[in-house]
């Protein structure tokens, strides 16, 4: 709906243009929505997550009756109005206490969702340590083998990476890396350990009880001189620290995911750097000059035309001695050979 609005002045035109799809996207904006009932725990966790996400976060302070797993239309509406593509919906019910739903959108429609329950949490204020600067990019750390094998955790990793770190940047200030967000899992249960090869079996019987807990921690980094170029890293807990358990989820629609995974064609500058499709026998040297190699068949030197000289004519050399003694005979012989 917003797309079809024709801007009436230059300012609104600029605002609409800023919302248009771009080749290299901006950071995703997250909206924090409270459901019909959120307890103290969910409120606190959402506030802390928002503090981590800060400049790209919008808070909805009032309650909204949203149930993402039943009807996502209101989320789609919020996404369109606020130009946001991530949601954290807090909802606490008797059946699912202290729940939060992470929702990711594509093209103002829901792509995938993952519900987590807050088991325990500790606020930033309880750690009396230095905090990170809002707006600085966090480093992300994921620890467990399940992040590579189990579909639920692959999704969670992708969601959290998108949530905190999704923006593609081409350079980073080395002094500005001041905090780490670490996501670790509890010990892998034996059922998952053996059944990782048969994923179908695990996903059907994947009760949240079976899945290990998720520990999210935030630390500030201290870079100490190590005597080498690379500093030694020390971490200090910054907070929040949240322990989560996985609950319901929806996978992305494969067709929509395919659309969302489309990449722009690699630009010319990057082709020169050697990215994209590699051209055979072409390379760019350090000076930025394009160099090519050409392969030729082996040259036949026998057909090479050198300087024409009487002395170099064929058949001149072998009967040189005869020529010396009897010039006339030789010329006759020569003629005969030519006619052959």
């Amino acid at each position: 709906m917003l797309r079809t609005v024709k801007p009436k002045n230059a300012r609104s035109k600029r605002a609409l243009e800023a919302r248009e799809a771009k080749e290299v996207e901006d950071a995703r904006t997250a909206i924090f929505v409270k459901g019909t009932h959120t307890g103290e725990v969910v409120n606190g966790v959402m506030k802390e997550l928002m503090a981590l996400k800060r400049p790209n976060a919008i808070s909805f302070s009032k309650k909204n009756s949203v149930r993402p797993f039943e009807d996502a239309s209101s989320l789609e509406f919020y996404a369109q109005k606020n130009d946001a593509s991530l949601f954290v919906v807090g909802q606490s019910t008797k059946k699912r206490p202290n729940g939060m739903v992470f929702v990711r959108m594509f093209d103002e429609r829901v792509l995938d969702m993952c519900e987590v329950g807050v088991e325990s949490w500790k606020s930033m204020n309880e750690f009396k340590t230095p905090k990170s600067t809002p707006g600085h990019k966090p480093l992300m750390h994921f620890a467990s083998e399940l992040f590579d094998s189990h579909p639920r955790f692959i999704q969670l990793k992708s969601l959290l990476m998108d949530f905190f770190n999704g923006e593609v940047i081409d350079s980073i200030c080395l002094a500005g890396m001041d905090h780490v967000i670490s996501v670790s899992l509890g010990p892998t249960p034996a059922t998952l350990n053996t059944a990782t090869s048969t994923l179908g079996a695990t996903s059907t019987g994947a009760d949240s009880g079976e899945l290990p807990k998720v520990h999210i921690r935030a630390y500030t980094t201290r870079l100490l001189a190590s005597g080498t170029r690379i500093p030694r890293v020390e971490l200090t807990p910054m907070g929040p620290s949240v322990d989560l358990s996985l609950r319901r989820h929806t996978e992305a629609d494969p067709e929509m995911m395919k659309q969302a995974m489309k990449r722009p064609k690699v630009r010319k500058q990057e082709v020169e750097k050697g990215l994209g499709k590699k051209k055979k026998n072409m390379e760019v040297d350090e000076m930025g000059d394009l160099r090519g190699r050409i392969h030729l068949a082996k040259q036949d030197l026998g057909k090479l035309q050198t300087r024409k000289m009487k002395g170099l004519k064929a058949g001149m050399d072998e009967d040189e001695d005869v020529e010396m003694s009897d010039g006339e005979a030789d010329t006759r012989k020569h003629k005969r050979r030519k006619s052959q």
Binding site: M140, H141, F142, A143, S144, E145, N165, S184, T188
Partner: peptide
């Protein structure tokens, strides 16, 4: 590129 590190070692129980 995304400032992310993944530790695939199993958890030391």
């Amino acid at each position: 590129g995304l400032l992310t590190v993944t530790d695939l070692n199993p958890v030391d129980t």
